[in-house]
Design a protein around this nucleic acid. Structure first.
Lengths: 325, 325
DNA sequence: GACGCAACCGCAATCGATTGCGGCACAGCA
DNA sequence: TGCTGTGCCGCAATCGATTGCGGTTGCGTC
């Protein structure tokens, strides 16, 4: 019994090259010996690994764990594994990680860290490395991605505020080097126009990062500038929490003085005080769809790249109310 | 120039076997060619991999991401990688994962999933696989672990309640197949005794899992049973949130009617209403210490196993107050 | 009975490193 | 001059699989 025959018998793809009796014999002996193929040796020979890299900026941001779960739940049943790493938004750390993963023959990547300008991603794409972006996109629209329908989400949030009677709506814009930040800001402007409201640049405050302190700082800036507004559309939930802080510090009440809408609907955000009205993003589905997309790419490398946009839902809670008359 | 020489020149541990001039020449050429050693080939030959496995029950539980970060931040600077997987508390999934990781030559494990009875962990330990348990321990005290000082934590929480004037204190106990659940329950009983309070079994409700619904269900059981209490010591924050729900459903107010103390101090728990008084666990440090412990084991396999207990801190917030007179 | 065709299996090369051992050169010493 | 010791380096085996190619076997056909 030669090793080559055993190899063929054990591999479903080559099993037909071996007689059924031999296959059976191999199976029996393998089971008896507790034999397992060595993935490292296999990977060395085949340059594959049954695993993909999952690049996340920071797992401590509650937005990402559900995405991770979505990816895992699609991959594990078919014997694939996801290799997860945090980058802390540090390009050097990201590059080192990607390098290490490529050296270990990962078959593709899911990136949750895309920036509009992202040389590493463009370089991988140019090298025909299968990859899918999640949540955020890069500036290159031809790279496959799975993202929320930010435009509709903002539109829903804005309509909600307008219906409540708000006319002066401020926006805490996210980082403008990220697609989410840019898209939501643009959608905010568009939405103002759609509702016949005048644009008011002084009601827009940009945050350098998606964090609570950044949100607080930006809100404080708005308040200090003397801009008038009765509601805030926050670029995401963390910024909204920061807005809570800034308002509280000024003795302003939410929603009595200012209504706030968040974005993402992260876990537990329905438990804060007041419960945050937020646009729910199907985080788990984003991860799952990304994994499926990547698997398609792996199976059929020449395929036309495809991107997916997932629908959102507005969750109305206690942070929004009609403005003071 | 033979491959063997190059190998030796590139490896810091064997570099002294090669003349300095040759080392320099190799370095130059390697840099010029952009040559990287192939980790897969190296791993096949050496049976090492510069990576460890990190087994987590569920990343969506906010307790775990900081632990993951702690582990990563210690490993990455020295060129090691952590390979993270969720098990969903499913032993089969855990076993499959561990199997896959061992096949890929991970050098050790950090387990955040330990149960008191845990055949897989005992089996790995018996096979001299380096491993460290975090957050929870197994029934075998000789297996290295990094855990919070649950006993002191419970004592602090209980003292806080007693000082406020509470005498009838209930406990939402966690799963009794987990060390954390058992230890905290025991510490609760001990603490009653220390304060000269009579034990009251009817004030203890056990939860099958660390989840919000389980906490709500257990609290409802306590309320339905007619047991008297003015405060609840919850086994962890999720159970405490569940208690919030159950109280609210009965029209009871926290802390006016019932004070609640949580455990873990997960992110954002200071933002719920009312902000939860909770025992803070140094999650990041747990992860970091575990990684350091594991690295020690790898460097010096014969070493005497060591466990670490980290101190806790009580964060007093709005969910605790003096009982109604 | 000779031939052709499949089906099946084994040989040996290959993936890219690591490492024990032996050989060679050169220096030091008698 | 000859011998020993040391420092470098290369040979070849090895890790454990995969795979192109060629050889063997068995069977059907003329």
């Amino acid at each position: 019994m030669h090793a080559a025959t055993v190899s063929r018998a054990l591999n479903p793809a080559t099993r037909h090259l071996v007689s059924p009796e031999t296959v059976q014999r191999v199976d029996r002996v393998a089971a008896a010996l507790g034999y397992r193929v060595n993935p490292v040796a296999r990977s060395l020979k085949t340059a594959r690994s049954a695993s993909i890299g999952l690049i996340v900026p920071d797992l401590m941001n509650p937005l990402f764990p559900p995405i991770v779960r979505g990816v895992e739940d699609v991959l594990l049943p078919i014997g694939y594994h996801a290799w997860i790493v945090n980058t802390d938004n540090d390009p050097a750390r990201e590059a080192a990680t990607v390098e290490a993963m490529r050296g270990r023959n990962v078959e593709g990547f899911v990136f949750a860290t895309a920036r509009l300008e992202h040389p590493l991603i463009e370089q991988l794409d140019a090298a025909d490395v299968p990859l899918v972006l999640v949540n955020r996109r890069s500036g290159r629209p031809d790279i496959p991605s799975v993202t929320p329908d930010d435009v509709s989400g903002v539109a829903m949030a804005m309509s909600h505020l307008v219906e409540l009677g708000h006319r002066k709506i401020a926006h805490l814009a996210g980082p403008q080097d990220l697609s989410t930040g840019v898209t939501r800001l643009r959608a905010y402007r568009q939405s103002l126009e759609d509702h016949g409201l005048a644009p008011a640049p002084e009601r827009i405050a940009t945050c350098k990062e998606w964090s609570q302190p950044a949100g607080a700082e930006a809100t404080a800036r708005l308040l200090d500038s003397g801009a008038e507004f009765t509601a805030i559309l926050a670029g995401n939930d963390l910024l909204a929490l920061g807005a809570y802080d800034a308002l509280a510090q000024r003795g302003l009440a939410c929603p009595a003085d200012v209504s706030i809408v968040g974005f993402n609907d992260i876990p537990f955000i329905d438990r804060v005080s007041p419960p945050l009205t937020s646009v729910r993003i199907p985080q788990y589905d984003i991860g799952a769809e990304a994994a499926r997309l990547l698997l398609e790419e792996l199976r059929d490398p020449g395929r036309h790249p495809r991107s997916i946009i997932l629908p959102l839902k507005l969750c109305v809670r206690g942070s929004t109310a009609a403005p003071r008359p």
